[in-house]
Design a protein around this nucleic acid. Structure first.
Length: 412
RNA sequence: GUGGGUGUAGCUCAGUUGGUCAGAGCGCCAGGUUGUGGCCCUGGAGGCCGGGGGUUCGACCCCCCUCACUCACCCCA
């Protein structure tokens, strides 16, 4: 055990995993491009206010999970716990969705939440965040879900399904909320202590509770989908129709609730059974009131976030292919050949070839062994004899065929 | 914040009621065999047994305290 370790909940992405991450990021960018989204890279930190108001004072994230500090200018600053609030701030600040314009944006990067780490949950974690600002219609909802589906398919997780629900709007949700409170008040004894507290704070969350008693109680509870106002119901029906037209796979789950306060109407989630307790891979929804909440115009929005470490976990379970090795493994077999080998390596690299050079002392046997493990296609052996002949020996590790490489052009 | 589990070699892990219990496999290094590497054989290097305190003639083992990792609750991606 070395003296220093990475801090709790912060992890090194090691070289053997990095290629997988790169693949995910490349796939995300490519899919975003196809759907005509542009990258916006907001800063890693914002004024605390932005997240507190955007995400909701009463949420766990804001109450106890934010990395907040006071900087030297006495400013209260928070490391972003999610991307949406910062993107909203940027969209408003730079008028990206002003005057009826539509902004289609994505963002890829680390988020920070002070939580107790466990499987699939870190303090620094990474998300792909995709958002559409300025279009209230169900078409963009469908587009966003299509993008998410394409992304999952692109990275090889096409078997995952999207859970879909509508959470209503300020017109219809209060009425439904009252119905729920009435319903659960009559069944308080069945609820877990947490949910008894939620009863008046945030009754929608009870629907999402996993404890036995609550689940049973929820079964007979009124469904939000049956209490949507005409507009919300119409929006949801149109959306489903569009998804059907596209042939997208989804499941309507009337018990789906989202943890953040700002969601309205469309809400969705992708979960996997292969991740342990932290099963949500991606989640999002519409947030038509968020921009106004942050002091801007009344700009509608919809977006989702996907957790990259969870996607990486799923892909690793499927067994990721080993990345290819270098083109050449350069084995220096004698001290006298060191300088020539050095120039040869640099020369090959200048020609665009990937060359692994091994300067450590060792036998031919060990050099070949290492070359084999490196995954290199060929070994270049350079020792006393080769130097005298002016020709290095090149051995193909797969076919065992050997040939000579004239050193002349490389050493001039 | 609340529970449970685990900390022994670079990695994965054994280790009897406390008395050669400092070990194995893999990896690494050297040698042998082989067609100059993959299989096989021989040898070698590597550990304050997470850290601190206590009990004891004696602690990897028992007790206390700490730290780290991990899983779960909670919440979320």
């Amino acid at each position: 055990m070395s003296t220093y370790t990475a801090i709790k909940g912060f992890k090194d992405i090691l070289p053997d995993e990095a290629p997988l991450w790169r693949r995910l990021e490349e796939a995300a960018r490519e899919v975003a491009r196809r759907y005509d989204f542009q990258e916006l890279r907001p800063p890693m930190a914002e004024r605390t206010e932005v997240f507190a108001r955007g995400i909701g004072q009463a949420t766990d994230i804001v109450e106890k999970e934010m990395y907040t500090f006071v900087d030297k200018g006495e400013e209260r600053i928070t490391l972003r716990p999610e991307a949406t609030a910062g993107l909203v701030r940027a969209v408003l600040e730079h008028h990206l969705a002003a005057g009826g314009r539509v902004a289609r944006l994505f963002c890829l990067g680390p988020m920070f939440r002070y939580e107790r780490p466990q499987k699939g949950r870190l303090r620094q974690f990474h998300q792909l965040d995709v958002e559409i600002f300025g279009d209230p219609g169900p078409e963009v909802d469908a587009e966003l879900l299509a993008l998410l589906t394409s992304f999952l398919k692109e990275i090889g997780l096409g078997d995952l399904t999207i859970n879909l629900n509508s959470l209503g709007c300020p017109q219809c949700r209060p009425g439904y909320r009252e119905l729920l409170v009435k319903f659960f008040t009559a069944r308080q004894e069945d609820l877990c202590p947490d949910c008894r507290r939620r009863l008046h704070l945030n009754p929608l969350r009870i629907i999402d509770c996993k404890s036995e008693g609550c689940r049973r109680a929820v079964e007979g509870a009124p469904k939000i989908l049956e209490h949507l106002c005409a507009d919300c119901a119409g929006h949801f029906e149109t959306l489903k129709g569009l998804l059907d037209t596209l042939g997208l796979r989804y499941v309507v789950n009337p018990n789906l609730v989202r943890g953040l306060d700002y969601y309205t109407r469309t809400a969705f989630e992708v979960i996997s059974n292969d991740l342990g307790a932290q099963s949500a891979v991606a989640g999002g929804g519409r947030y038509d009131g968020l921009c106004r909440e942050l002091g801007g115009e009344d700009i509608p929005g919809i977006g989702f976030a996907a957790g990259l470490e969870r996607l990486v976990m799923l892909l690793r379970e499927k067994g990721a292919a080993d990345p290819p090795g270098p083109d050449y493994y350069l084995a220096v077999l004698h001290e006298s050949a060191r300088l020539a080998a050095f120039r040869l390596a640099e020369n090959l690299r200048a020609r665009g070839l990937r060359v692994a050079a091994d300067w450590t002392p060792g036998s031919l046997k060990s050099r070949l062994k290492r070359a084999d493990k490196s995954g290199a296609a060929k070994v270049i052996m350079l020792g006393e004899d080769e130097l005298a002949r002016g020709q290095a020996t090149v051995r193909d590790l797969a076919s065992h065929e050997q040939s000579d490489l004239d050193l002349g052009p490389f050493l001039r």
